[in-house]
Nucleic acid binder design. Structure first.
Lengths: 210, 210
DNA sequence: GATTGTGAATAGATTCACAGCT
DNA sequence: AGCTGTGAATCTATTCACAATC
């Protein structure tokens, strides 16, 4: 029986691993497996069995001692924990290369997120649609964010425009920002910001090249 | 005087922060600042002054006690440490949404990386060019990777095709893989893999929404 | 007999506090 | 006087080892 209580201090590292576990369970379900164990998951997906158990233990008891975990049950438990059992409304700011790719990315819609609007200040793009999502002018950001009740803002604008667009998102009441621009954004403490800097990923790889 | 010695056990966390510091220094240089200090950096970019010093200390002495750091000198030191003082040859596998956006992304070329070839198995795409980079058929991956001497492979293919393409990259002698597919890849211990899963980023944000 | 869940032990990362330079 | 570089102290994360359960 999943308890799904929500303790206060959970590390992002743990949360990221929960996402990984969720992927693994979805994969097992595709393969028709109905039951698993921390050891089986660890072996197959190169994880740590102890860590899986410790991570889950923070949220309740998901397994049966001596037996293991019910795949469907644990999967649903993780979906609930991560909050992807419902769909989160999001908006995308920036309809350039990366923004367009994100708008077309099918994974979001099937994974608990939906982009309801795109913003750009290029008048050639305003009014067009990317995958059925309308592109609005940036000046309408506040209004549209409120209308669609967006919780998450995805920032895919040039570095120089990132802070002002972040400010606009925050002013419009957004709660979390996924930022693809290579700048350290300044948002209030109430807004969670996650930075995704493609160059930093490559630089990490470059560092470890011998 | 930068020592730029290379100790053996450096954490990826440290390396990512070095990348952040490098961005900060570039920004200061744009603004015409010629000298800075750990405290000044920390205040301006919301970092930890002690941590900046500790991170740098692992690689030598970059500053002057009582004075601070020379912006240009520290910037170059970090570029050398991260290995971006030279350009790393890379290839991109997958010319779909994300692959195309990556190929067009100007940041790579200006940041120490260059994509020399794109691979796809869609014959409609083979032979075309994206931003002057030729799209080859995936069957030519081994030959072309060897020809251009690619060190880094960027994987932007569907999940189901990720492992086989990773295998092909590894067989061709690639040393590091940046993987955008939502799968835990199996590469040898000699190959460094960095996973970038957009859904996991959003799930982290979703978790922390109240 | 097998596996979970967990306190204790270990390893790793960050912060503190100050000696050592300029 | 002010800042770097660093050992010591603290905090965080992971792993070990085993009691509890099926």
């Amino acid at each position: 029986m999943p308890a799904t209580s929500l303790p206060e201090d959970i590390s992002p590292l743990t949360v990221n691993r929960l996402s990984v576990y969720l992927r693994c369970l979805r994969r097992l379900q595709e393969l028709g497996e109905t039951r698993t164990s921390s050891k089986a998951l660890a072996r197959r997906f190169h994880l740590s069995a102890t860590q899986i158990r410790k991570d889950l233990a923070q949220f309740g008891e998901f397994g049966i001692r001596g037996v293991g975990y019910e795949v469907a049950e644990l999967k649903e438990g993780l979906e609930t924990l991560l909050g992807v059992h419902r769909t989160h409304p999001a908006v995308l700011v920036g309809a350039g290369n990366i923004g367009t790719a994100l708008a077309r990315f099918p994974g979001f819609s099937s994974g608990g997120f939906r982009i309801f609007a795109i913003f750009d200040n290029d008048l050639d793009k305003v009014g067009r649609r990317i995958r059925d999502i309308e592109v609005f002018h940036s000046r309408d950001l506040g209004r549209v964010v409120a209308e669609v009740g967006a919780e998450i803002g995805i920032l895919a604008v040039p570095a120089a425009a990132a802070q002002e667009n972040c400010d606009a998102l925050v002013a419009a009441g957004i709660q979390a920002v996924l930022n693809f621009a290579p700048v350290q954004l300044e948002a209030g403490p109430a807004v969670r910001v996650k930075n995704v800097d493609l160059l930093i990923f490559l630089e990490e790889l470059a560092f470890f090249l011998k």
